[in-house]
Amino acid sequence: MAKWFEDAGKNSDIVLSTRIRFARNLKGIPYPKKMTAEDAKRVIALVEAALEEMNYTFTKYDMQKLSPNEKERLVEERYISPDFASSKIPSCAYISDDNNVSIMVNEEDHIRIQCIYAGLEDKKTYDLISKIDTYLSEKLDYAIHEKYGHLTSCLTNVGTGMRISFMMHLPAIVMFKASEGIFSAISKLGLTVRGMYGEGTKSAGHLFQISNQVTLGKDENEIINDITHVVEGVIAKEKELRQELLNQKGLVLEDKIMRSFGLLKNARIMQSKEMMNLLSDLRLGLSLGITQNISLKDITRLMIMASRAHISSSETSDAPFERDVERAKLIRNTL
């Protein structure tokens, strides 16, 4: 089945993906930062036995056996975290054959379940992760507390252990310099906004991630409804400003987008950051009907397939120039 970045969902012109993760630990075993290799192997064996009995098939990725490039590819596809890829203790990821679920064992917590879908799909994503969690809670002895709920390694995750995040493309909000005001309002609501690539609000490709901070004192549905409400507000604002941009700058905007298309279509050497910015123009052009020659899915797919580890073969992995040449070739072949 298609991976999230090869697919499209609701509001895909603005929301690239919806991701939810649950942090869970097993009772009586020190958390990964304090565990021995023996403890780590024990947790892997327990989780694996539980997954084997499940009516859902997973492929196992042993972090101690994968090459650095293979791990980085999983990071780029967002199935594992960068910290997990550099884990020093025995740790494994299990990715479902339908590519919607990944389970990291011995990341910051013993178990990190994650579900991801393209587009604004909070309900669908929650239903799936909740089903998997309920199943695992019956097979495994979760560390829970009668007052705090799920116990986690970091106190910022205690309670539901849930983090929901939306990856959003917000070029018009950035171009109208409205991001600062909107983002600071969002952070006052107990949510976090950060650039997906690069630091602060100067995110390459105008991509931002909005996620919850609250994990305790509200249940999963309340947390999801609160954040989805805000995300829908941001979508409405972005749509309004995109239209405004078209009305105010019509031909200038069209010129900028078509120039970006021309560069992508013809360049022979392409750095990653430049690609992200040009693809952002293309995505905007597509949503405003200025460009038609590519689909949203293809843009997201290109973003991942042309990222560092994906574009590297074993020969070019340490050669940035060759990578940039390969990247330009892949883009030309796609457009």
Binding site: S137, E138, Y142, G217
Partner: peptide
């Protein structure tokens, strides 16, 4: 200090939960 309340309201699952 970091959460709106210190009492868990969400799902727990499992026999102990």
């Amino acid at each position: 200090k970091i959460q709106p309340s210190t009492i868990h309201k969400g799902k727990l699952g499992g026999s102990e939960g």
